[in-house]
């Protein structure tokens, strides 16, 4: 078999580990503006990249990273590339801003970019992105490309023209096998993305990179959108906290236990 062409689709999101105050909800504009937190690769997409690197280590091949967005952080991309990818393809445009796209538009742009930059034998995505948590784009992309897909993988292996995937179940896992080409959505059970060396980060700048505009792909993102946000509000999840004090921290702990008993919570 010829060299294995692996594609990893990644999305940049505001760091989901940021505190709630870092996400400013603008109900009028129906958008969330991150305040003082950096963009990061969506965590499950990092897992997908790690899965790709492991497949490449075991079976050989090359890894292309693909991302759709607007004003993508170069530093985030370089660091991810340096972990073990070989090439970057982006679809960038103001019309590809998070607020301007839904899952269908995003997957349509990805599918068009795959047709232009591919073919690929194995396509990996995160199981869901950390901003919308929708879990639609990976499986949707497979549907648009008419290739089979397996979701929520905890392990991905390729042997010849066949992939063996362990999908994560609430109480264990299931082994699924399929011929390539195949799309797999990846979960955190795969393991964390390795850290690149400084040398690798430096070298990443020299890797091949291409950027397309939606028009280059014959696409108009706005016209592809099916699902629209009609209202966006900041939820009130605050609770009234009863702070328990004591003569010492141990005593406060004991008083907490007594209070929980009194309120019939334990």
């Amino acid at each position: 078999m010829a060299e294995l062409n692996i594609l990893v689709c990644v999305k940049q999101v505001p760091d989901p580990e940021g505190p709630p105050s870092a996400f400013e909800v603008d109900s009028a504009a129906r958008k969330v503006t991150p305040k003082g937190i950096p963009p990061v690769l969506s965590p499950f997409d990092e897992n997908a990249l790690e899965a790709a690197i492991r497949v490449k280590e075991a079976a050989g091949g090359s890894i292309t990273m693909l991302s759709v967005g607007n004003n993508l952080s170069k530093a985030v991309m370089l660091k991810a590339l340096a972990s073990g990818a070989d090439r970057l393809v982006t679809v960038e445009d103001p019309s590809c801003d998070q607020e301007g796209l839904d899952a269908f538009a995003t997957a349509s742009l990805l599918a068009a970019a795959v047709r232009k930059a591919g073919p690929f034998d194995l396509i990996l995505t995160g199981r869901q992105a950390a901003d919308t948590n929708a879990g639609q784009v990976g499986l949707g992309l497979a549907q648009l490309l008419s290739i089979p897909a397996v979701s929520v993988a905890g392990k991905v292996e390729v042997n010849g023209g066949t992939a063996r995937v362990e999908t994560v179940l609430p109480d264990g896992y299931e082994v699924v096998e399929a011929s390539l080409p195949l799309l797999v959505t990846v979960s955190h059970e795969v393991g964390d993305l390795r850290y690149p060396s400084l040398m690798a980060i430096k070298k990443a700048k020299t890797l091949p990179m291409e950027t397309f505009k939606p028009a280059d792909l014959g696409m108009e993102p706005g016209s592809l959108v099916i699902n629209e946000i009609t209202e966006l509000t900041a939820p009130n999840r605050e609770r009234r906290c009863r702070l328990v004090e004591g003569e010492s921290p141990e005593d406060a702990g004991a008083k907490l236990a007594a209070l929980l008993k009194e309120d019939k919570i334990i």
Partner: peptide
């Protein structure tokens, strides 16, 4: 921030609060 979304809270080092909490729960 966790205190804003909690119903009960203790401000203190967990190494000290937890033994007090666990031992009283054992008694209860």
């Amino acid at each position: 921030y966790i205190f804003k979304v909690s119903d009960y809270g203790v401000v203190g080092e967990w190494q000290q609060v937890l033994p007090g909490l666990s031992s009283r729960i054992r008694e209860i």
